[in-house]
Simulated scan of single mutants.
Amino acid sequence: MKYATVQDMVDRFGERELIQLTAGAGAVAVDAAKLERMLADAQAHIDGYVGKVFALPLVGCVKPAPTPQAPTATVLVPPPQLVRFACDVARYYLYDQASPEHEVFVRFKAAQRDLEAIADGKAVLACPWGGEPGLQISAAAPGEGEVMHSFARREITNDSIAGYR
Rank of each mutant, 00 (worst) to 15 (best):
Q97Y: 14
G131N: 12
A117T: 12
A141L: 14
A140R: 13
E146H: 05
G143V: 08
K122L: 07
H149C: 06
H149E: 09
K122R: 15
F105Q: 11
P128Q: 08
R153L: 03
D114G: 13
A98C: 09
D96K: 12
Q136A: 09
P128H: 08
A152V: 07
Q112Y: 15
C127M: 11
Y93H: 09
V147P: 01
R153V: 02
Q112L: 14
H149R: 08
A141G: 08
E101W: 15
S150N: 01
E144F: 00
K109E: 15
G121C: 01
F108T: 05
E144C: 01
L135P: 03
E116F: 13
G134C: 04
G143Q: 02
Y95V: 12
G134A: 07
Q136S: 05
A139L: 12
I137Y: 06
L115Q: 10
K122F: 09
I137M: 09
E146R: 02
E146W: 05
H102E: 13
E101Y: 15
L115E: 08
A117G: 07
E132D: 09
I137C: 02
L115M: 14
A123I: 10
Y93K: 08
W129K: 03
K109L: 13
P133Q: 10
H102S: 06
P142N: 08
C127A: 09
G131I: 11
R107N: 09
V104A: 02
A126D: 04
A117C: 10
L94A: 05
V124E: 05
L115W: 10
M148H: 11
K122T: 07
F108D: 01
S150Y: 04
S150I: 07
V147Q: 04
G143I: 06
Y92N: 01
P128D: 02
E116P: 05
G134Y: 03
A111F: 04
P142W: 12
E146C: 01
Y93F: 11
G121D: 10
L94E: 00
F108M: 08
W129F: 07
